[in-house]
Amino acid sequence: MRRFELILPESVDDCVRALAQRGPETKLLAGGTDLLPQLKNGLLKPARVIDLSGVARLRAIEPADGQGLRIGSAVTARTLELDNIVRARYLSLAESGALVGSVQVRNLATLGGNLCNAAPSADMAPPLLALDAEAVITGPKGERRVPIAAFFTGVRHTVLAPDELLVELVVPTPAPHSGGNYLRHTPRRELDIAVVGVASQLTLANGVCTKARIALAAVAPVPVRATAAEQSLEGQPVTPDRIARAADLALEVARPISDQRGSAEFRRHLVRVLTRRTLITALARASA
């Protein structure tokens, strides 16, 4: 790793001030599981690094005044995997946290880092899309909220300005009779990156689907919602046939590339398979 100056703020305000003083030469550091490999490989050579690990607020999980749950950006994947409230309300998010890297990585890797790094394959993004989460961002001009669906702007690009910081995610509490599931495909069982990831979330009322969300990872420059597939499910009972059709429709938003992790053909194939499987599980969970 090359040399840099390290700044150790203890509050969000300290962070914002530090960001404001420094230009694009500055990088925020959370768990470091994306950033450090990038520094070591020389992809990034920042002059200054701001360490977020001293900012307690970013690690908090707390109720968001009737709006659901606030999950601090520095909450780790391991915490999401194990946290009882997260597991009870947002099982797909817990499932995605449990899939990241290995336990040694999950104890460092943060939710905010996963989102701000903005890899198309980021596992924690699809569940948040399917849960209609909002990102709380702060900067010199104060706080703003962005729906997670609008957070990603391209491969490794987000709506964050260089002087802004992701503080937390606000995740609404799903209506009763809701269920979700996140699945991904990887060549290895652990220590791997999604070839395709799919999160589904269904809400039922009297046997009818009142809300459907399907979000895909690693099939487009940014995590995407399969809105046509969602609409095909809403307003009627969820049957195997409709699930199969939704899985076909999910393909419409997939614009996969071929790389060493998987060909575009395989990715398209997986979108169908995983969409169907997550919908079946989400349905079972919503019905339970």
Binding site: L29, L36, Q104
Partner: peptide, 26 residues
């Protein structure tokens, strides 16, 4: 050095972490 092998695993507050990915000051 990039979190992919586990050879550097130590415990931080009792939890296993990849010590190659944590800055010493963290």
């Amino acid at each position: 050095g990039t979190g992919d092998c586990g050879a550097c695993t130590v415990h931080l507050d009792g939890k296993p972490i990849a010590s190659c990915l944590l800055l010493a000051m963290q």
